[in-house]
């Protein structure tokens, strides 16, 4: 019971560990802030050199910080170099997190919650933070447990889940939902203003989608951002004329 309470408190504490996020040691201060009390409680003393490096550069996906903390503590307890393990595995877990949380879960929840809001209830928006937050806490909990038991083998276990393949499936589901959303958008627009030719409007929407894919493949991001702005302004000008300000 005492163990569960301490894990719960560690998870709550980890919600805030990025407080000192900066351009020099990134999340290093936060990692040291999480690790130091546990090291003290377990009676682990770091060498002077390692103690200095505890708060040095560290950057990973926030959902995997407890997994890295577990690996670090396990290595320290075994008399190995915990700092090296922390540094070596932070990038690997960052890549895992980017792949699962940023690339797969976030787009999926975005389109699912839009779908739910438009088709079911405005409360559908709650799905986004609840499910994402649920996965975040789940990974913090199991990551911490697994990390402190398996040590360096933790990454092997996580790799078995094949997060990259999840992302591939989720991507396809997202495109399917986009199709449903476009139809809903066209339905909304026809309720706002009567469209003379719904077929033409549908073709236009489809062409805009294909245009978007084409622009993604051919144009770089900064050019896209500038182009988008110019497109918005040009449309504004073309539709309404250039004389915006009047007396």
């Amino acid at each position: 019971m005492a163990n569960l309470i301490s894990i719960f408190l560690l998870i709550v504490k980890s919600f805030f560990y990025q407080g000192n996020y900066n351009t020099e040691n990134m999340q290093g201060t936060g990692f040291a802030w999480l690790a130091r009390p546990i090291l003290k409680r377990r009676g682990i003393t770091l060498s002077e050199e390692h103690d200095k490096e505890l708060g040095a550069y560290f950057n990973t996906n926030p959902s995997f910080v407890t997994a890295l903390l577990g690996i670090f503590l396990k290595e320290c307890q075994n008399g190995n170099n915990g700092i090296m393990a922390k540094n070596a595995y932070s990038s690997a877990f960052a890549a895992l997190g980017d792949s699962f949380f940023w690339h797969a879960l976030r787009p999926l929840l975005c389109f699912v919650s839009i779908f739910l809001v438009l088709y079911v209830s405005p409360w559908g928006i709650a799905i986004y933070p609840i499910v994402y937050g649920g996965f975040h806490i789940l990974f913090l909990f199991f990551g911490g447990l697994v990390g402190s038991v398996l040590g360096l083998n933790t990454i092997t276990l996580f790799n078995r889940f094949r997060f990259k393949e999840w992302a591939n499936i989720v991507d396809k589901v997202s495109i399917f939902i986009i199709g449903a959303l476009i139809v809903k958008g066209l339905e909304y627009s026809s309720s706002y203003e009567a469209s003379d030719n719904m077929l033409l409007v549908t073709v236009l929407a489809f062409a805009a989608f294909i245009g978007g894919v084409f622009v993604y493949n051919k144009v770089s991001r900064p050019v896209f951002a500038m182009g988008l702005l110019i497109l918005l302004l040009a449309t504004l000008g073309a539709v309404g004329g250039y004389n915006i300000w009047i007396q």
């Binding site: 787009p107 992302a167 958008g185 805009a208 989608f209 245009g211 978007g212 894919v213 993604y216």
Partner: peptide, 16 residues
Amino acid sequence: VIFFCFLAGYFSGFLT
């Protein structure tokens, strides 16, 4: 809505 379609197309380029 058309603007949304364009952005959705652009975003889907990002998907595998």
